[in-house]
């Protein structure tokens, strides 16, 4: 059952000459899933989030969030969503707790419930002991956590996260990603945007790849990879007899291509897990020892490259 329905959404900034930032994007998000918009800088991810947050009026199309139109029923949409903007939007001269209390009021919380929710969120973003410190004194990762915490105060049915891990250390990123997975496990629906292929791959139940304002592919990670017919790369090094080995490996079932690249063999295979044991057997039969193996499963990076002819810069 879908909780977000996006239909032919368009946005042109400063018409009639301005950029067509979002160009007829359609997708849906099922209740309780993490849906990622993956795309490079300027793809139109933030613009899409802004329209789904009722911050920007679409130039065309519409979206239903929790059954309400972002164009005609923005109040109901805003009740249902929590928005984590790409750039940190907090009051730096106020403490973490003061920020949360203020934003909680803006979400309509009050009194004991407000304080209880703020306590819960501080716990969740693990900032209980720093809650009285001004946000301006926080590290980038801590600010990001408060930035996310604000959007959770009113227990939104749909959470939008616009590149919430940009510019932070691996440890903070890890804790944010784990937090997002935990929220999903509790039933929250999440719309996530990123230009990090690995994040989309790890987090998402489904992914939409966007480029130049257009949705160029939608599906699960596996579906997307399969759709472009990409194969796994297997790179192998042996102690001797490399050329002979490559010829033998080329004949192993499941191997579609075998070649030599510098001192290694590079094979394209349909299913690395299935083929690898056979490659070892063939080497043993020829009296060669495999000294190094490197498997690269097909990924979204390859999909993006395949679809656009350009790399998805990290």
């Amino acid at each position: 059952m879908s909780i977000v329905e996006v239909q032919e959404l368009c946005k042109q900034y400063d018409p009639p000459k301005g950029v067509l930032a979002v160009d007829g994007v359609s997708f849906h998000i099922d209740k309780g899933e993490i849906f990622s918009l993956l795309g490079p800088n300027g793809a139109g991810k933030s613009t899409t989030i802004s329209m789904l947050s009722c911050l920007l009026r679409p130039s065309g199309g519409d979206a239903l969030v929790d059954g309400h139109s972002v164009v005609t029923d923005s109040q109901a949409v805003k009740e249902a969503i929590g928005v984590v903007p790409q750039d940190i939007a907090l009051y730096p001269d106020m403490s973490a707790r003061e920020n949360l209390l203020f934003w909680g009021k803006m979400y309509g919380l009050a009194g004991a419930e407000l304080h209880a929710r703020v306590d819960e969120v501080l716990e969740l973003i693990t900032l209980v002991d720093r809650q009285k410190d001004r946000v301006e004194k926080f590290s980038g990762g801590m600010k990001r956590r408060v930035n996310i915490g604000v959007a959770l105060l009113h227990k939104p049915r749909v959470l939008y996260l616009d590149e919430p891990t940009v510019g932070i250390d691996p440890q903070s990123r890890r804790s944010i990603l784990d937090g997002i997975l935990a929220l999903r496990d509790q039933g929250m629906t999440i719309l996530y945007t990123t230009h990090y292929m690995a994040e989309a791959q790890e987090l998402s139940d489904r992914i939409g790849i966007v480029d130049h304002g257009k949705m160029i592919a939608v599906g699960t990670n596996e579906e997307l990879v399969r759709s472009v017919g990409e194969e796994a790369h297997v790179e192998l090094s042996v102690d001797h007899y490399l050329e002979g080995m490559v010829e033998r490996w080329a004949d192993v079932p499941g191997v579609t291509k075998a070649m030599i690249d510098e001192e290694r063999a590079v094979l394209l295979v349909q299913d690395a897990n299935e083929v690898l044991p056979r490659l070892f057997e063939a080497a043993a039969a020829a009296g060669s020892r495999i000294t190094e193996v490197n498997v690269t499963e097909p990924n979204l990076e390859m999909v993006f490259l395949h679809l656009t002819g350009r790399a998805l810069r990290e």
């Binding site: 009050a110 959770l152 227990k155 509790q186 039933g187 629906t189």
Partner: peptide, 8 residues
């Protein structure tokens, strides 16, 4: 849970 918000 975290996704049970009712309008306030």
């Amino acid at each position: 849970g975290w996704a049970e918000g009712a309008p306030h």
